[in-house]
Amino acid sequence: MSLKVSLFGITRDIVGTSVIELPAPAPATVGELLAEMRKQYPALGELRSCAVAVNNEYASLDQPLHTVDEIALIPPVAGG
């Protein structure tokens, strides 16, 4: 199973692309995804926060991930 992860704001700057594909065997949960991304891109660990969104909702660390999910890294938001 592979995963596509969308990147916005500073996470896109850090990774250098707006979508990254993680080949199989991809992380099975949100927590594993964050750990893997931080391993590959240590600068992600320096952010004030980095959440993961699954299908447009904030996801908990133990949430499982599937190929069909719309997944995104969510760095600290700053609307308004």
């Binding site: 916005f8 704001g9 500073i10 700057d13 952010l47 004030r48 969104a53 995104a72 969510i74 760095p75 600290p76 938001v77 700053a78 609307g79 308004g80």
Partner: peptide
């Protein structure tokens, strides 16, 4: 999920990052 990048005389920065 909206992000703000401020542009200054000498560079830019993602706010609150």
């Amino acid at each position: 999920t909206i992000w703000k990048r401020e542009e200054y005389e000498d560079g830019t920065e993602w706010v609150a990052a």
